[in-house]
Write a protein that binds this DNA or RNA. Structure first.
Lengths: 194, 194
DNA sequence: ATAACTCGTTGACTTTGGTTAAGAAAAGCT
DNA sequence: AGCTTTTCTTAACCAAAGTCAACGAGTTAT
């Protein structure tokens, strides 16, 4: 099991080198797990015991509102996946996490994380940076809802996360954009006939 | 100047008692400032040097999109006000902060905060908790946009932050809900004629 | 291979929101 | 008080989104 994509990614946030012994320790604490498309990592009401780092695949975060699934976010390669409310405060989750592709994830249990933070105190900073990045992501999402029409949000998505359009089924995208699947279909028709 | 509302509020997050000497020190580092309605605390493009704790009044966070102001959040009594991106990473702010009422705020400069963190290391935890609370707030806002209609978002606001409805002008609320002022007026008419 | 299912599109219809413009109501000012 | 400015409402019209239903292309299962 090769953690190097994770290690490399950590270097984007903080300067921290690991010795060979460190790496063995990391590999002990952080298993890499394969999940089949359709696997549910977390259900509404459960307390999230693990956070993840995405090596390959796509994880969808969604709410179930009266039986209708509403997508809040997509986590693709090299993203950390944490349901912060539930993970850090041990509250029941309001969201589901679902692998919508076959996924390869580093699985970091809460207890392992605490151990690793003792061993590598520098990682404290990392978790704060990830939290800030996540906040920034959500602030941007709110900004698009407050300031853009559904059509403009779709165009915005084409510009900012074009890779999503080719790999995410449209009915997931539509709920992420806050419109019905039929509307997204018509929005696309309008855009591409221009 | 009496910091006790702030001290009491901090107790909601962490257990931390201050001696009389501590209090004097806090008062030295954290001035309490009065702002007139209409005061701008931060402009787009500026780097946020201060975070605030709201004793009294209401601060509005908004984007300026092509000359149109779009409200992202309202901060009322006993809320911490921080533009995290800009404050922690010294990036130009994308948002404005405006006092939409006469306000009394504790003003915490970045440098003071660093000094205080040295003196009271327990406060480190506090800043993380505030960050998590802010993330949770934004996740909830996204949830309402993804899953509710404008009318339902207004009803949701009546249920969850009813105090806002009586003190915030409707044209600010409308941009917070992502609709035009005229639409909000019609939404209210629909709701109250039921 | 065919049946069942999933997903995307389209049409018809209704509801809702955006826009522009006008005016009413409320708040602030001298 | 009277005047001005700000805020809210209403109307008319158009564009867009929701809903329901049908259809077809593509996939999966048996």
């Amino acid at each position: 099991m090769d953690l190097s994509p994770l290690i490399n990614h950590i270097r984007n946030y903080i300067s921290l080198e690991f010795s060979d012994a460190d790496l063995l320790l990391l590999q002990e604490y952080i298993p890499i797990v394969h999940y089949k498309k359709g696997s549910i990592l977390l259900k509404e009401g459960e307390i999230s015991k693990d956070s993840y780092f995405n090596f390959r695949g796509c994880v969808r975060m969604f709410y179930n509102i009266n039986g209708v699934e509403k997508t809040a976010n997509f986590y693709t390669e090299n993203k950390f996946i944490t349901v912060f409310d539930s993970y850090t405060q041990k509250k029941p989750s309001e969201v589901y996490l679902e692998c919508i592709e076959d996924c390869t994830l580093a699985k970091i249990s809460f207890d392992s994380e605490q151990e690793l933070l003792k061993k590598f105190p520098k990682l404290e900073v990392l978790s704060r940076l990830i939290l800030e990045e996540e906040l920034s992501t959500y602030q941007n999402i709110v900004a698009t809802f407050v300031s853009l029409s559904p059509e403009e949000r779709y165009v915005n998505l084409m510009e900012n996360r074009p890779e999503l359009l080719n790999r995410i089924p449209q009915y997931y995208l539509s709920s992420y954009l806050g419109v019905s699947p039929e509307s997204l279909s018509r929005i696309r028709k309008r855009i591409f006939s221009k």
